[in-house]
Amino acid sequence: NLYFQGLKYMVPGARVTRGLDWKWRDQDGSPQGEGTVTGELHNGWIDVTWDAGGSNSYRMGAEGKFDLKLAP
C-alpha cells in the first residue's frame, strides 16, 4: 500500500496536500493548498498547519483512512 509506505516520511516539516480520503472541505484553503506537518504521527492521526492559515489533525491510518499525501 503506497500510503503505508509513505508514512515514514510523514514527519514534522514534511509538506502535504489532501489525499485519497479527504473529507474536510476547504480546511486546506480555497483553492486547495499545501501544508506542513507539525507533529508526530499518533494513533493514526497527524497534525498539519496549512499555508492558508488553519491547522488541524488528520487521519493517516486512523479508521483505515488517509486524508493526506506528500506534496509533489
Rank of each mutant, 00 (worst) to 15 (best):
G61F: 00
W45H: 02
A14L: 07
F66P: 01
G33C: 12
P12N: 11
T38F: 07
V16E: 01
M10L: 13
S57N: 09
G33K: 07
F4R: 10
S55E: 11
P31G: 08
G6I: 15
R18P: 08
K65H: 05
L7M: 13
P72R: 12
P12Q: 09
Y3M: 14
G54H: 11
W45Q: 01
M10Q: 03
R15C: 04
T38N: 07
P31T: 08
W24T: 07
T49I: 12
Q32T: 11
Q27R: 04
V11S: 08
D47A: 13
P12V: 12
G39M: 06
K8C: 15
G53T: 02
G19S: 07
F4C: 15
T36E: 06
G35N: 01
D67W: 02
D47F: 13
G29Y: 05
T36I: 08
F66N: 03
G13C: 10
T38D: 07
Y9N: 08
D28L: 04
A62P: 02
D26E: 12
P31V: 09
N43C: 15
G19Q: 05
R25W: 13
P31F: 08
K8I: 13
W24R: 04
D47S: 12
H42Y: 13
L70S: 04
D47Q: 15
G44P: 01
A62L: 04
P31N: 09
K65A: 13
Q27L: 05
D67M: 02
W45Y: 07
Y9I: 08
G13Y: 04
Q27E: 13
D51A: 04
M10W: 13
G53W: 00
D67I: 01
K65D: 02
K69Y: 14
D47R: 14
V48N: 00
K65T: 04
R25E: 14
E34C: 15
L7R: 08
S55D: 07
A14M: 09
D28W: 05
S30K: 12
Y9R: 08
A71F: 06
G44M: 03
D67Y: 02
H42M: 11
L70I: 10
D28Q: 05
G13V: 03
V48P: 00
G35D: 00
W45I: 03
D67S: 01
V16N: 00
E63T: 05
N1D: 15
D67T: 03
L68T: 00
W22H: 04
W22F: 06
W45P: 00
D21P: 02
G39W: 03
Q32R: 11
Q5W: 13
E63W: 08
K8E: 15
G39V: 05
L68M: 01
T36M: 08
G39R: 10
G39T: 12
R25Q: 14
T17P: 02
G35V: 02
L70Q: 06
L68S: 01
T49R: 11
K69N: 12
D21S: 05
P12Y: 10
A71S: 12
E40L: 13
Q27A: 08
G19I: 07
S55N: 10
P12R: 10
K8N: 10
V48H: 01
L2V: 12
M60C: 10
L7T: 08
L7Y: 09
V11Q: 09
W22P: 04
L41P: 08
Y58W: 02
L41K: 05
A62I: 05
R59A: 01
T38P: 00
R18W: 06
E40D: 11
A71Q: 09
L41T: 06
M10C: 09
P12M: 12
S30C: 15
R59D: 02
P72H: 14
F66A: 04
T49W: 08
N1K: 13
A14I: 10
G64P: 00
D67K: 01
L2Q: 15
G19A: 07
K65M: 09
F4M: 12
F66L: 05
G33F: 06
T36H: 04
E40P: 13
Y9P: 07
D51I: 03
G33A: 09
G6Q: 15
V16Q: 00
A52D: 09
G19M: 06
P12K: 13
A71R: 08
Y3P: 15
S57L: 14
Q32A: 14
S57Y: 09
Y3L: 14
E40F: 14
W45S: 00
G39N: 09
D26Y: 06
G64L: 07
V16K: 00
P12I: 13
V37R: 00
S57M: 12
E34M: 14
T49S: 10
L68K: 00
Y3K: 12
K69S: 13
Q27D: 10
G61E: 01
I46T: 01
D67G: 01
G35Y: 01
Y3G: 15
W22I: 05
L20G: 11
N56K: 07
Q5G: 09
G54A: 08
V16H: 01
A71Y: 06
T36W: 06
D21V: 05
G39S: 14
E63C: 15
N43I: 05
S57D: 04
W50K: 00
A52H: 14
P12S: 09
G35S: 02
G39Y: 02
V16A: 01
E63N: 10
F4V: 11
V48Y: 00
L68I: 09
L7V: 11
P31E: 10
D28Y: 04
H42S: 11
M60A: 06
G6T: 15
V16G: 02
Y3D: 15
G44L: 03
A62C: 08
L20K: 13
R15P: 01
S57A: 11
K8D: 14
Q5H: 13
P12A: 12
P31R: 06
W50F: 01
A71K: 09
G29C: 07
W24P: 07
S30F: 12
S57K: 14
F66Y: 10
T36L: 07
K23I: 14
A14H: 04
S55I: 12
G19L: 05
L2S: 15
R15F: 03
G54R: 07
G6V: 14
V16W: 02
W24D: 07
V48A: 01
S55R: 13
Q5A: 12
G64A: 07
G53E: 01
S30M: 12
S30Q: 13
G44R: 01
M60R: 00
W45F: 05
Q5P: 15
W24M: 05
Q32V: 09
A71L: 12
F66R: 03
N1R: 09
V11I: 13
N43K: 10
Q5M: 09
L2D: 15
N56C: 14
W45G: 00
G33H: 07
G35C: 02
G33S: 12
V16T: 00
T49P: 00
L7A: 09
A62K: 04
Q5I: 10
N1E: 15
P72E: 12
R59T: 01
A71W: 07
E34P: 14
V37Q: 01
K23G: 07
A52G: 09
W50D: 00
R59M: 02
A52T: 11
L20M: 12
N1I: 11
I46H: 01
G54N: 10
T38L: 09
N1G: 10
T38C: 14
A14E: 06
L2W: 11
Y3E: 15
F66Q: 04
G13L: 04
G44W: 06
N56R: 08
Q32H: 12
G33T: 11
Y58K: 02
G6N: 14
D47W: 13
T17V: 14
D47P: 12
W50Y: 00
D26F: 07
R59E: 02
Y3A: 14
T38W: 05
Y58I: 03
F66T: 05
V48R: 00
S55Y: 10
P31A: 09
L2T: 14
G6A: 15
E63S: 10
G39C: 12
W22R: 03
